[in-house]
């Protein structure tokens, strides 16, 4: 059962998306800011991270840097920033994929599967 760490400061999104993820068979942990995201990452050791970029204090980009320092866990960035520069910066920071809000849940689930498959292929 893959474990997803969902990091977003938008509580409604966290709750609804967590529901859909659980329905799809994932275990879900949510975090609403950068600090608790890193804490939860250490505690839960998730298989994939869904990371929002715009968060107060420690933003998604910094969380990505910090986690990449010691882990190659798949990271999908979720963000309302849609400019190419933002996408490039996100991918350069170590993200595996980049999803722009608003997104379709079905598409997000497909992308999660894809990064997990790729990651398993790499580690096998």
């Amino acid at each position: 059962m893959p474990h997803v760490l969902l990091v977003d400061d938008e509580a409604p999104l966290c709750e609804s998306l967590a529901y859909s993820l659980k329905k799809e068979g994932y275990e879900v942990t949510t975090a609403s800011d950068g600090h608790s995201a890193i804490k939860q990452f250490h505690k839960q050791a998730p298989n994939v991270i869904l990371l929002d970029l715009m968060m107060p204090e420690v933003d998604g980009m910094e969380v990505c840097w910090r986690i990449r320092a010691f882990s190659n866990v798949p990271i999908l960035m979720l963000t309302a920033k849609d400019q190419d520069v933002d996408k490039v910066r996100g991918l350069e920071a170590g993200a595996d994929d980049y999803v722009t809000k608003p997104f379709n849940t079905r598409e997000l689930l497909a992308r999660i599967k894809a990064v997990l498959r790729r990651h398993q292929g790499e580690s096998a």
Binding site: E10, P12, L13, S16, L17, Y19, S20, K23, E24, M54, A80, K81, D82, T100, K101, P102, F103, N104, T105, R106
Partner: peptide, 23 residues
């Protein structure tokens, strides 16, 4: 503006998706 408009729309869409998926 883009960010502030996208966020609530995204919240609505994800919530509707969750409702459709059984909620």
């Amino acid at each position: 503006v883009s960010h502030e408009l996208r966020t609530p729309v995204s919240n609505v869409q994800v919530t509707i998706d969750a409702l459709e998926r059984g909620a």
